[in-house]
Design a protein around this nucleic acid. Structure first.
Lengths: 353, 353
DNA sequence: CTGAAAGCGCTTACAG
DNA sequence: CTGAAAGCGCTTACAG
């Protein structure tokens, strides 16, 4: 029994109006719940709407009203649980407020980002939430984002973010990395590495700054060899683990750029016979779901991506209500979650100066 | 320096036409790359489009053409990595084909599902991909989905799915559970539980059927006490672990409804002093990212959610090209990924009959 | 309280 | 090769 697909003509307010013997204007008023319509008329129209299974065409209404109730979310990568949670949180708030979510992902490519944004914008979103790809060009983004209220999330745009044209929701990278580092110092570590990330990414810079803050406050100074870059993936991190121990003095613990790197480091340590949490202290960043089930469970800095998504959506909604006003920056707090991976005792290692 | 928001009037084809001294029709033809336009005219128009930073209003065009280039994706829960990966895969294929993705989530609530679908449909998507909430009503879905080509993913709708009105993409639950069970049998297990899920969900039924198939083929019969229900979450599973050992004969291994349940079981086993992989064999279902980093690494049935998302999107695109034809069902293959959690030796346990 | 009319930004026959 | 006109489905002053 073949299904009937979208072949039949659409039911419009004209059909309803004709069936009820009223004008299209009246039907429209009923749809928008206007008090101008007499009760008896309203009921008749509503009954007919239901009978014909009428579906409101919001696109047509939005065109006429020059409004939009879509918000576009453009992310780097949905398969990253951090962004998936973020999207889930944003969706919950937006749906609650009656908005629909357009979703796109850039795969961390500035070119795809331009294409995706251009495509989104043709659909006339009321606002855009953008977690920018690394190496995004401020100029090219300005071009395509002109006219659409935008909230940038997670990292500042290319050239530093001074003179930002957009609202900005940042993680407290600097403070988060600082408390992570302080935690390792409190455990007795003195030789602490910063592992992973690329130093040209703003979040990596900020986290490194927090790391240095903590060291400086404790009167420690970082050996340059303790700053090890690598792509923020588990695999890369595992294969770069050896770089931490290439020279003396080797570190006894590491603050990692994020959890993916930290999980890779856990694997890398195991592969070279070191026990994370016993021989070597590890702290991650993000608190992704895998962190708590890793071996050993990963101490990390929680950024609560779902909360961030909700917060981003709320900031956007405020902007849409209030209009106007200069761009605002908001910094979301970070919190340390202590688990087994950081309970190493530095004395067992040779890393002490 | 306050940003200029979407306050200025929009640039339309009328503006471009006026600036070039041509008609709006000509501008439209240029936009759609029609060969009807003379080269010289085309260049002039294109230059003006760029100069004024013109943005195509796809909503208006779609209204006029009675077309749509949006596809709606309605999922249970984005923070479930299975669905996040699925969405990522679908997005990649849809974006490639020039479609934009509307995303909504239902949180497994049939009421929210109705509301979300209704809201989506008002935006006139070309098609819908729906991973239905449990206990969805076939009738209510029919009502709201009338007229929109729909692909149902992951589970059949409420009353069994006979006389399905929609395309359907299923995981091979039955075969997947069967190979999982056969694997445990091959390792020497004879007392094998099926742990987790609710028996009124179709995927749970199918997986249990595959489990029974394997037992029957090996001449084994399941003790009814080995069928333990629980919500498909890690926490629930951990706290229900004791139910497996409440009566003799206790099982020596378990096929789990999914990875979340299996991870909870790993934790539950550890909490009651049993070593998964040594004292007790565990197999999951899904191969979520956490599976490979669990302790011990989780043997599981891979369903490749990203691939499924891409497949779902392709099926939808085919339907949109081809139109017509009866609804089709597709079953995606499942594959066993062997890791440490299933290497238990049943002889160490008391569970043998 | 209700209707006639104009218009949102675009496309598409139809003439010329 | 280009333009005038009608129309997609809706909303909103404006009369009455």
């Amino acid at each position: 029994m073949p299904t009937t697909l979208a072949t039949e003509r659409r039911v419009t307010i004209t059909d309803i109006a004709a069936a009820c013997g009223v004008s299209r204007a009246t039907v429209s008023l009923v749809l928008r719940d206007s008090p101008l319509v007499r009760d008896e008329t309203r009921s008749r129209v509503q009954a007919e709407l239901a009978r014909q299974n009428y579906v409101y065409h919001r696109g047509a209404a939005n065109l006429r009203r020059r409004a939009s109730n879509a918000v576009a979310l453009v992310l780097n990568d949905l398969s990253n649980p951090f962004f998936a949670e973020f999207a889930g949180g944003a969706d919950a708030v937006l749906a609650e407020a009656g908005y629909v979510m357009l979703l796109g992902s850039t795969g961390e490519s500035p070119e795809r980002q331009q294409a995706v944004l251009a495509s989104m914008i043709e659909h006339d979103p009321a606002a855009i939430i953008l977690s920018p790809a690394e190496h995004s060009s401020h100029e090219r983004l300005r071009q395509v984002l002109a006219r659409v209220p935008t909230l940038v999330f997670n990292r500042a745009i290319g050239d530093g973010g001074a003179g930002h044209d957009w609202d900005f929701l940042a993680l407290d990278n600097r403070h988060g990395a600082r408390i992570a580092t302080e935690h390792l110092i409190a455990l007795g570590h003195r030789a602490i590495a910063f592992f992973g990330g690329h130093r040209d990414s703003s979040s990596c810079c900020e986290r490194r700054a927090g790391y240095r803050d903590a060291l400086a406050a404790a009167g420690l100074v970082a050996d340059p060899h303790w700053l090890v870059e690598c792509a923020p993936t588990r695999l890369e991190a595992a294969s770069r683990t050896h770089a931490l121990f290439a020279r003396d003095p080797a570190p006894t613990a590491a603050v990692c750029y994020n959890d993916a790197v930290a999980l890779g480091l856990l694997a890398g340590l195991a592969a070279c016979g070191r026990r994370a949490g016993a021989d070597f202290g590890v702290v991650g960043f993000d608190d992704i779901p895998e962190a708590s089930v890793a071996t050993p469970p990963l101490t990390t800095v929680a950024t609560n991506p779902r909360e961030r998504g909700m917060q981003a959506a709320r900031l956007v909604l405020e902007r849409l209500q209030g209009k106007g006003g200069p761009p605002r920056s908001t910094v979301a707090p970070a919190r340390l979650v202590v688990r087994a991976s950081s309970l190493g005792s530095p004395g067992q290692s040779q890393g002490k100066p």
